[in-house]
Design a protein around this nucleic acid. Sequence first.
DNA 1: GGTAAGCCTGTACCTGAGTACCGGATGCAA
DNA 2: TTGCATCCGGTACTCAGGTACAGGCTTACC
Lengths: 149, 149
Amino acid sequence: MSGLRSGQVAAAAGVNPQTLRYYERRGLLAEPDRSLGGHRLYPAETVTVLRVIKAAQRLGFTLDEVAELLDAGRHRHGRHPDAGLRARAQAKLTEVEVKIADLQVIAGTLRAAVKAGCDDLVECADQPYCPIPFATIAPPGACSTGSPA
Amino acid sequence: MSGLRSGQVAAAAGVNPQTLRYYERRGLLAEPDRSLGGHRLYPAETVTVLRVIKAAQRLGFTLDEVAELLDAGRHRHGRHPDAGLRARAQAKLTEVEVKIADLQVIAGTLRAAVKAGCDDLVECADQPYCPIPFATIAPPGACSTGSPA
DNA sequence: GGTAAGCCTGTACCTGAGTACCGGATGCAA
DNA sequence: TTGCATCCGGTACTCAGGTACAGGCTTACC
């Protein structure tokens, strides 16, 4: 027995072996047991944890957020309402929806630019027919929510 | 006369003065004339160029891409079809559309997770009812285009 | 001509998520 | 027991798009 070596875990989860140490530093993976010589020996469930991390990242969570999510799961869930995955997923969903709306505005602008046949940005900027909103263009995420939280 | 000083240009365009030097290094802004003492003196149109840069960034172009776009505009347009703003805007539009589709998949997954009431990622990963696709989750942008270019 | 604000160059730092390299130690199989 | 793959730690680097700081010079106004 003993456990899986870092290379095995990395291969099984499809990540770079260095990433395991990185996640350990970041608090996403618990420090595993060691062999007598100091090599890491992981329990099999580490592979699951890694898959979970990758899935959460895919859903838009940062590593810090993933670390909190994992922690929230470990410390008995349901303590206070913000801590759970459900609430955070809801918040992240809102974020993603805002981002989608933002990109849709951008797509609309690009479509208009293509249609209008703009072919030189600097020249265009002075023309009245150019659909690109040079002056009023907002930084990403600046709109749609009334107050900055 | 002489031109605008860097602080004036930066203020007029709403950017950090350091950013002007940064853009100059990156090839987005031409090297301006200097005063006898070595201070930069910008023509008024630089403010327009900065606004254009910011607008293009907002539309999803990287600074390298913006530099190319500006260059393409300067070197007489219409040479070959890829070079123009129109073609690039079309390509960028496709990129943005892919990103939107990707985020919509993510939003759908988050909605499903909220609805299913998942509350602990690691536990969830072993449950059959959990809607989060841990195993099959793809890296961003991996789908929808058949071959990796 | 004095003084303060502004500008100069060069270098270092920031975020986020890793990846790469180094010299040395360990694990495992033949 | 030898040899080689793997792993160790620590450090440095990557990408993108800036931002900050230090130490010194210039400009502008009174």
